[in-house]
Design a protein around this nucleic acid. Structure first.
Length: 139
DNA sequence: GCCAACGTTGGC
DNA sequence: GCCAACGTTGGC
Protein backbone atom coordinates (compact mmCIF):
# COMPACT_ATOMS: atom_id res chain seq x y z
CA UNK A 1 0.00 0.00 0.00
CA UNK A 2 1.46 3.27 -1.13
CA UNK A 3 0.67 6.91 -0.74
CA UNK A 4 0.49 9.59 -3.41
CA UNK A 5 -0.41 13.18 -4.04
CA UNK A 6 -2.53 14.40 -6.92
CA UNK A 7 -2.59 18.01 -7.94
CA UNK A 8 -5.42 19.86 -9.53
CA UNK A 9 -6.32 23.44 -10.17
CA UNK A 10 -9.65 23.83 -8.40
CA UNK A 11 -11.00 25.89 -11.28
CA UNK A 12 -10.41 22.96 -13.60
CA UNK A 13 -11.30 20.09 -11.27
CA UNK A 14 -11.92 20.69 -7.58
CA UNK A 15 -12.40 18.52 -4.53
CA UNK A 16 -16.12 19.37 -4.62
CA UNK A 17 -16.27 18.15 -8.22
CA UNK A 18 -14.58 14.93 -7.12
CA UNK A 19 -17.04 14.40 -4.25
CA UNK A 20 -20.02 15.05 -6.50
CA UNK A 21 -18.74 12.80 -9.26
CA UNK A 22 -17.84 9.82 -7.08
CA UNK A 23 -15.44 7.48 -8.87
CA UNK A 24 -13.93 9.18 -11.89
CA UNK A 25 -10.93 9.16 -14.18
CA UNK A 26 -7.89 11.15 -13.24
CA UNK A 27 -7.37 12.38 -16.76
CA UNK A 28 -5.15 14.77 -18.63
CA UNK A 29 -1.73 13.79 -17.30
CA UNK A 30 0.74 14.55 -20.10
CA UNK A 31 4.02 14.18 -18.32
CA UNK A 32 6.04 10.98 -18.34
CA UNK A 33 7.14 11.06 -14.76
CA UNK A 34 3.58 11.65 -13.60
CA UNK A 35 2.41 8.87 -15.90
CA UNK A 36 4.93 6.44 -14.50
CA UNK A 37 3.62 7.22 -11.04
CA UNK A 38 0.06 6.58 -12.20
CA UNK A 39 1.19 3.20 -13.52
CA UNK A 40 2.58 2.24 -10.16
CA UNK A 41 -0.63 2.93 -8.31
CA UNK A 42 -2.42 -0.08 -6.94
CA UNK A 43 -6.05 -0.47 -6.09
CA UNK A 44 -6.84 0.96 -2.65
CA UNK A 45 -3.74 3.16 -2.55
CA UNK A 46 -4.54 6.54 -1.02
CA UNK A 47 -3.78 9.93 -2.54
CA UNK A 48 -3.86 13.40 -1.11
CA UNK A 49 -5.90 15.81 -3.22
CA UNK A 50 -4.05 19.11 -3.56
CA UNK A 51 -5.50 22.35 -4.83
CA UNK A 52 -2.79 24.19 -6.73
CA UNK A 53 -2.55 27.87 -7.76
CA UNK A 54 -5.45 29.29 -5.77
CA UNK A 55 -5.81 27.54 -2.46
CA UNK A 56 -2.44 25.79 -2.40
CA UNK A 57 -3.59 23.27 0.18
CA UNK A 58 -4.19 19.59 0.58
CA UNK A 59 -7.92 19.34 1.05
CA UNK A 60 -8.89 15.67 0.96
CA UNK A 61 -8.03 12.06 0.34
CA UNK A 62 -9.02 9.97 -2.65
CA UNK A 63 -8.66 6.24 -3.10
CA UNK A 64 -7.56 4.41 -6.21
CA UNK A 65 -10.55 2.31 -7.27
CA UNK A 66 -9.23 1.19 -10.67
CA UNK A 67 -5.65 0.75 -11.77
CA UNK A 68 -4.19 2.39 -14.84
CA UNK A 69 -5.62 2.08 -18.33
CA UNK A 70 -5.19 4.19 -21.50
CA UNK A 71 -6.37 7.79 -21.27
CA UNK A 72 -9.28 8.06 -23.73
CA UNK A 73 -8.62 11.79 -24.11
CA UNK A 74 -5.06 11.15 -25.31
CA UNK A 75 -4.76 10.82 -29.07
CA UNK A 76 -1.15 9.72 -28.92
CA UNK A 77 -2.07 6.69 -26.80
CA UNK A 78 0.94 7.28 -24.63
CA UNK A 79 -0.71 8.31 -21.41
CA UNK A 80 -2.88 6.60 -18.85
CA UNK A 81 -5.50 7.35 -16.23
CA UNK A 82 -6.55 5.72 -12.98
CA UNK A 83 -9.98 5.92 -11.40
CA UNK A 84 -10.17 7.59 -8.01
CA UNK A 85 -12.93 8.25 -5.55
CA UNK A 86 -13.16 10.83 -2.78
CA UNK A 87 -13.02 9.06 0.56
CA UNK A 88 -12.24 11.62 3.20
CA UNK A 89 -12.11 15.35 3.55
CA UNK A 90 -9.32 16.65 5.77
CA UNK A 91 -10.59 18.24 8.96
CA UNK A 92 -8.67 21.31 7.97
CA UNK A 93 -6.76 21.87 4.75
CA UNK A 94 -2.99 21.67 5.09
CA UNK A 95 -1.40 24.57 3.27
CA UNK A 96 1.79 24.69 1.28
CA UNK A 97 3.16 27.15 3.84
CA UNK A 98 2.53 24.69 6.66
CA UNK A 99 4.26 21.97 4.68
CA UNK A 100 7.23 24.18 3.89
CA UNK A 101 7.52 25.19 7.52
CA UNK A 102 7.60 21.62 8.77
CA UNK A 103 11.00 20.04 9.16
CA UNK A 104 9.73 16.52 8.54
CA UNK A 105 8.25 17.59 5.24
CA UNK A 106 11.14 19.58 3.83
CA UNK A 107 12.05 16.91 1.28
CA UNK A 108 8.52 16.33 0.07
CA UNK A 109 8.18 16.11 -3.71
CA UNK A 110 5.50 18.79 -3.63
CA UNK A 111 8.17 21.31 -2.68
CA UNK A 112 11.15 19.75 -4.43
CA UNK A 113 9.43 19.20 -7.75
CA UNK A 114 6.84 21.88 -7.85
CA UNK A 115 5.69 21.11 -11.37
CA UNK A 116 5.03 17.42 -10.98
CA UNK A 117 1.31 16.67 -10.76
CA UNK A 118 1.36 13.04 -9.60
CA UNK A 119 3.94 12.17 -6.96
CA UNK A 120 4.71 9.56 -4.33
CA UNK A 121 4.41 10.48 -0.66
CA UNK A 122 6.41 8.71 2.02
CA UNK A 123 4.58 7.08 4.89
CA UNK A 124 6.10 9.45 7.45
CA UNK A 125 5.14 12.39 5.29
CA UNK A 126 1.61 11.10 4.97
CA UNK A 127 1.29 10.67 8.70
CA UNK A 128 2.76 14.08 9.41
CA UNK A 129 0.28 15.77 7.09
CA UNK A 130 -2.62 13.89 8.66
CA UNK A 131 -1.36 15.10 12.02
CA UNK A 132 -1.12 18.69 10.79
CA UNK A 133 -4.67 18.55 9.56
CA UNK A 134 -5.98 17.58 13.01
CA UNK A 135 -3.73 19.99 14.88
CA UNK A 136 -4.98 22.91 12.87
CA UNK A 137 -8.51 21.71 13.56
CA UNK A 138 -7.92 21.92 17.30
CA UNK A 139 -6.62 25.45 17.20
C1' DG B 1 0.71 39.29 -14.20
C1' DC B 2 5.42 37.83 -13.92
C1' DC B 3 8.81 34.61 -14.34
C1' DA B 4 11.72 30.51 -12.77
C1' DA B 5 11.92 25.94 -13.55
C1' DC B 6 11.00 22.45 -16.35
C1' DG B 7 9.46 19.62 -20.38
C1' DT B 8 8.91 19.12 -25.26
C1' DT B 9 9.74 19.91 -30.09
C1' DG B 10 12.17 20.14 -34.18
C1' DG B 11 16.07 21.79 -37.03
C1' DC B 12 20.62 20.69 -37.78
C1' DG C 1 22.04 13.36 -30.30
C1' DC C 2 22.44 18.28 -29.24
C1' DC C 3 20.37 22.37 -28.07
C1' DA C 4 17.66 26.66 -29.09
C1' DA C 5 13.14 27.96 -29.10
C1' DC C 6 8.95 27.47 -27.36
C1' DG C 7 5.11 26.05 -24.17
C1' DT C 8 3.35 25.07 -19.54
C1' DT C 9 2.99 24.91 -14.60
C1' DG C 10 2.44 26.97 -10.47
C1' DG C 11 4.41 29.87 -6.71
C1' DC C 12 5.02 34.57 -5.73
Amino acid sequence: MKYWLLKSEPEAWSWDNQVKEGASMWEGVRNYQARNNLKEMKKNDLCFFYHSVKQKSIVGIVKVVKEHYPDPTDETKRFVVVDVKATKKLRNPVSLDQIKGNNKLKDIALVKQSRLSVMPIKKIEWEEIIKLSSISYNK
